[in-house]
């Protein structure tokens, strides 16, 4: 299980412009992180995804993207897992 998680994290982290990536469980606890991302972000990432899911509870969870200058924070919930990806465009 951990090997698969590690593999998934490595795959995400190798995508273009990716700075950091983490996966959280349903309680908002960090299952694993890769790159420059604070594992404590799992809690707030989870909270944001839960909050957005209240908008249209009957639909599948959406992809959330927060933009700040050349940086993006992408949050996506899928079943038990919530993923948080940090991306940064080169200046």
């Amino acid at each position: 299980m951990e090997q698969q998680l590690e593999k998934a994290l490595n795959e995400f982290a190798s995508q273009p412009e990716t700075v950091g990536v983490l996966l959280a469980n349903r309680q908002g606890l960090c299952l694993g992180a890769k790159g420059q991302i604070n594992p404590n972000v799992s809690g707030i990432g989870m909270a944001i995804s839960e909050q957005v899911c209240k908008l249209e509870p009957n639909l599948n969870p959406p992809t959330i993207c927060l933009y700040s200058g050349n940086k993006r924070c992408i949050i996506k919930k899928d079943g038990e897992l919530t993923g948080v990806i940090y991306k940064q465009k080169p200046n």
């Binding site: 992809t63 933009y67 700040s68 940090y86």
Partner: peptide, 17 residues
């Protein structure tokens, strides 16, 4: 979210897709 990555209150837009 994370002061080290995005300074607090610097988020200027959000998309929910």
């Amino acid at each position: 979210v994370d002061d080290n990555f995005m300074p607090n209150s610097s988020c200027e837009r959000i998309s929910i897709v």
